[in-house]
């Protein structure tokens, strides 16, 4: 939990740096940190209170999702450019959000998880 908070915090600092120095003015690792914090924000912190499934997230599911998200964040990715970084993270965020909208451990849920696993190798 603390780790996730720190990741969000660091990502925010990176975002400030990117805003000051520009996309090209910072190392690729800054973009990666920023997008990891966006991943936590969009896929975990944000929750759709008007969606029947996402509205209620039991502790077991919370732990499962946080674990999955932190495993992604633990990975170091290689990118040629920041646009590639953005596209990959946007895709992962989208898949995680689809998971949030799907019944826990249902076939559909597992399928989305499968799609993510290729990024976790």
């Amino acid at each position: 939990m603390l780790k996730a908070k720190n990741l969000v915090r660091r990502g925010r600092e990176m975002a400030d740096q990117i805003n000051i120095l520009g996309d090209d003015g910072v190392p690729m690792s800054y973009h990666e940190s920023f997008w990891k914090s966006e991943l936590i924000d969009f896929a975990f912190l944000q929750q759709d209170a008007f969606d029947a499934i996402d509205a209620l997230c039991p502790l077991e599911r919370q732990e499962y999702m946080l674990d999955l998200i932190l495993r992604i964040c633990d990975r170091h990715f290689e990118f040629d450019n920041f646009e590639q970084c953005r596209i990959l993270f946007k895709e992962m965020i989208n898949t995680l959000r689809q998971m949030n909208y799907t019944e826990f451990k249902s076939p559909q849920f597992n399928e989305y998880e499968q799609q993510l696993s290729k990024h976790l190798a």
Partner: peptide, 13 residues
């Protein structure tokens, strides 16, 4: 838009 106003290059997105 903020990036543009701060004089940075914009990505395709």
């Amino acid at each position: 838009k903020t990036k543009l106003e701060n004089g940075f290059d914009l990505s395709d997105y």
